[in-house]
Amino acid sequence: MPVAITPRLLCRVAILSILSVATACSIPHKPPNRYQDDIEVSQLEVRPVTELQNQALAALNGEQYQLAVDYLQRAIKIQPRNAWSWHYLAQTYWRDAQYDRCLAMIERSNSYGSFDEDLISANDRLKPKCQPG
């Protein structure tokens, strides 16, 4: 049975659409209350941190693990809640066969990046490698 397209129906559809879009947007970006950490702000890209992360990854590729750790600790000092810096530190420790440290850094990375699916899956992939045997 065909539905008559009335102005009232159009209005309802429009309102529902607006509401659903608003709801969808509000799920991942639910504004924090005044006591909570604003993830979007604390994870903002900071250029020196990105530069240090890149230098660390280059050092890691060159198997200069200590140098990579140095870069990442500097990055963490500048922006301690950057979950990716902790992840890269975990990666460095994995490559350097320091597995306990690797696991500890994954845990810390997850605590800052629970909203970041890419990060969580990167940590999930890394975790079994840091549990040899």
Partner: peptide
């Protein structure tokens, strides 16, 4: 000071 977000808590 800001409290970390934790999905297991509701306010």
């Amino acid at each position: 000071f800001k409290i970390s977000r934790d999905d297991s808590l509701s306010w």
